[in-house]
């Protein structure tokens, strides 16, 4: 997946970049399967296909060529800035890595309750669905709101008929 990400950033053809992004996305779906999250894997595959199709359609409508890199000092500044970001985040994350719970034994403060009494309280055998639709239903309502806002924005941006001038 990391190789796919590097490829997606470096390759100079946009279609190849989208295919590399597909490598990352489907690798992520595979990781979800190995991490015992089948719901996530299913949703990730569907969403990955949809987003690849959307970006490919946009590229087909426009141009598949990458833009030229900047020349001279501007380019140096950009790369140095990127490297500084990279190093600062990496070092700070390594420092806080010790505070996280050990891999493989998460803190089950809330989820222990959900696991213990989820079936009796909601009647749903799938605990992920129980949490999404029952314990945290307002989250899902907010998600639907965001989706609605995004679709409205899409329609507004892409409509053919403009305002009369």
């Amino acid at each position: 997946m990391i190789l796919g990400a590097i490829l997606a950033i470096w390759v100079s053809n946009l279609v190849a970049a989208v295919v590399s992004m597909g490598i990352v996305g489907f690798g992520l779906a595979l990781c979800f399967l190995f991490l015992e999250a089948p719901d996530l894997a299913i949703v990730q595959i569907v969403v990955e296909i949809l987003s690849l199709v959307i970006i490919l359609a946009a590229i087909m409508k426009t141009t598949p060529e990458d833009t030229k890199e900047a020349r001279g000092p501007l380019r140096m500044t950009m790369y140095i800035g990127g490297a500084v970001f990279f190093i600062i985040f990496l070092v700070s994350f390594i420092r806080i890595c010790g505070l996280l719970p050990e891999f493989g034994s998460p803190v089950l403060r809330m989820a222990g309750d959900y696991i213990g009494s989820g079936l009796q309280k909601t009647g749903a055998p799938n605990l992920v669905a129980a949490i999404i639709l029952n314990f945290r239903g307002y989250d899902t309502l907010g998600e639907a709101t965001v989706l609605f806002a995004a679709v409205v924005g899409l329609i507004v941006v892409l409509r053919k008929v403009g305002r009369k001038r």
Binding site: A37, L40, V47, L127, V128, I132, D139
Partner: peptide
Amino acid sequence: DPLPQALVLTAIVIGLA
């Protein structure tokens, strides 16, 4: 742990939008 999975399930769909 089902709780992060539920959160990620919400976030994936929002990411598509």
